[in-house]
Design a protein around this nucleic acid. Structure first.
Length: 520
RNA sequence: GCAGCCGUAGCUCAGUUGGUUAGAGCACCAGAUUGUGGAUCUGGGGGUCCCCCGUUCGAGCCGGGGCGGCUGUACCA
């Protein structure tokens, strides 16, 4: 059979395998997140990967494009099912289904895989993990403030330094109020409102000029592709910019970014960067848009600011009116956890990491299943994104030393496998990772195998040792160090560095000693 | 989705105006060493030159279409 006839071994586009190093590092990171969530009083819950499509709330697949955005399929009874694309909608379903039994407010966390059927890119997969925490049944913005503080604690817990991240907070009511006040209220303006929100959402990436273009006629990107704008009048744009930059400077990071300036001039008014949430609230009140929604939203932000400032989080949880988040179901406070440090990619170009998580209040979601309205708020961490960020800053939680490989018992004589297996068993019974070499190659290959497995040492017993009732232990870590000084192969072989012989009944003891040398 | 760039061994890449059997380094396997990781030397396995169609006596190279990758942009619960 020629190679062309063989199946090509490849993971599907946008799906990734994970090796042992990733697995254990991810596990450590998840444990740290879980610990923080637990500390705040949240409890675990798990829901399935698959939900009824209508429970996910987006849209029923139509016949032509049943998998637009989500992975969907039909059950025996014609019911549409979908792989979940976030953890919020499934939680809403769970809470509604178990409403009477759950304590309220119900506070729970869960980590899990979610799936999105869209074009993958670097660092962007069709299967990825989220780690959420939600408070359901609490209308008070104290719940929102708490979740923001918890997000900050979580990032520190996994090894992001204070100052290298911020949790930005805004309120959809504020945004809605501003849009209303500049004449974009009403159902007929829904499309335009959406375009405006999308433009605002891009502030940190495109900067003020880009957003200004998108609010007006539109913007052309580097490749010459044109994005149609919201077609707002200049007066409307000015008001929006005044709003966006009112507590100006809160997307700031130690390094310059497109949005990081110490002052901004809009229509002759120069606005200086403020660094205090209370000041930001003052500014927002000063703008005084003619909208009850706006004032209610600012009041909520003021409460949140007061709570986080009182708890000493004012340098990490920051009011920022440019945060938009999802366009689908958020109804009140929205938040976004952003990493503010810069790193270099492989080509040495500076890269900003940006958002590693976000969330907000979704008061309408559980209510879809219930006769009564149920307020809820929650936060979601993009586990994979956070993980690669931690890799880049070398957080000890992901770069910590991996556990050593197994002690490998070499097979010198095929007819002695039972004896070798006995050694393996005695090591295992002593709690030491160990294995018999199960391949068919010679000794040299077995040494290479042990090396690749990161074995701390190998056990050697040929006929010579057996006759004396001994085994040889070769310390591979020590040996590798010793080898650096050896140039010729003859010397290398003769020296047998870091190798010693012991009576067979002292095997466990001696291996323990070797392990103790390197992994105390 | 749209736009630009790109596609030769597991990886990084050479490959002349279109001309024998397509190369290198690294990696892998084996031997030198009948029982020792590294280094060195020698040898070996690996390719539908992304795919299809076309032009040509002849295509890795030229043309068209497709697929895939990267970058930007759009969408994003």
């Amino acid at each position: 059979m020629s190679k062309a006839d063989k199946l090509k071994a490849r993971a599907p586009r946008g799906f990734a395998d994970r090796g042992p190093a990733d697995l254990s590092a991810t596990e450590r990171m998840l444990a740290a997140i879980r610990e923080t969530y637990e500390l705040y009083g949240f409890e675990g819950v798990e829901t399935p990967f698959v939900e009824y499509t209508d429970a996910l709330g987006k849209f029923l697949p139509d016949q032509d494009r049943p998998n637009e955005g989500v992975f969907s399929f039909q059950d025996d009874d014609e019911q549409w099912l979908s792989l979940r694309y976030d953890l919020t909608a499934p939680l809403a379903r769970y809470v509604a289904e178990n409403f009477d039994a759950l304590p309220k407010p119900y506070r729970s966390y869960r980590a899990g895989w979610v799936f999105r059927n869209e074009k993958p890119g670097p660092g962007r997969f069709r299967q990825f993990m989220q780690f959420d925490a939600d408070t359901v049944g609490a209308a008070s913005v104290a719940a929102d403030a708490e979740i923001c503080m918890m997000a900050a604690d979580t990032l520190e817990k996994v090894g992001i330094q204070r100052g290298d991240f911020i949790v930005k907070v805004n309120n959809r009511k504020v945004l809605d109020g501003v849009l209303e006040a500049i004449g974009l209220g009403g159902d007929d303006k829904a499309g335009q409102r959406l375009t405006v929100l999308r433009a605002i959402d891009k502030l940190d990436r495109l900067g003020r000029d880009g957003v200004q273009q998108l609010l007006g006629k539109g913007r052309k990107d580097e490749s010459g592709d044109f994005t149609k704008g919201a077609e707002l009048a200049d007066a409307q744009i000015t008001k929006l910019l005044l709003f966006l930059f009112s507590p100006f400077g809160h997307t700031a990071s130690p390094q310059p970014t497109p949005t990081d300036h110490s002052a901004e001039t809009i229509e002759g008014t120069t606005i200086f960067k403020s660094t205090k949430n209370a000041l930001a609230i003052q500014q927002l009140r000063k703008l005084d848009f003619e909208s009850a929604t706006y004032r209610a939203g600012v009041d909520e932000l003021a409460q949140i600011a007061e709570l986080v400032d009182a708890a000493g989080y004012e340098d990490r949880v920051i009011i920022d009116p440019s945060v938009v988040r999802g366009l689908e179901y958020y109804t009140g406070p929205v938040y976004e956890a952003e990493l503010t440090f810069q790193v270099q990619d492989e080509d040495g170009r500076p890269v900003r990491f940006g958002s590693v998580g976000g969330g907000g209040r979704y008061d309408g979601l559980v209510g879809r299943f219930r006769p009564e309205p149920v307020p809820a708020t929650g936060f979601s961490i993009g586990v994979s994104r956070l993980f690669s960020a931690l890799r880049m800053v070398n957080s000890p939680i992901v770069s910590g030393q991996d556990k050593p490989g197994p002690v490998v018992v070499l097979v010198m004589d095929r007819d002695q496998v039972a004896a070798y297996q006995r050694m393996v068993s005695s090591l295992r019974q002593a709690g030491i990772r160990a294995e018999l070499y199960l391949g068919s190659s010679g000794m040299k290959a077995q040494m290479k195998y042990a090396d690749k497995r990161q074995s701390p040492c190998v056990i050697i017993q040929g006929s010579n040792e057996r006759e004396r009732g001994e085994v040889e232990i070769k310390d591979l870590i020590e040996g590798a160090k010793a080898a650096e000084a050896i140039a010729s192969n003859e010397e290398w072989k003769a020296a047998r560095p870091a190798q010693f012989s012991i009576p067979e009944d002292r095997l466990v003891e001696a291996v323990r000693e070797v392990l103790g040398r390197h992994f105390s």
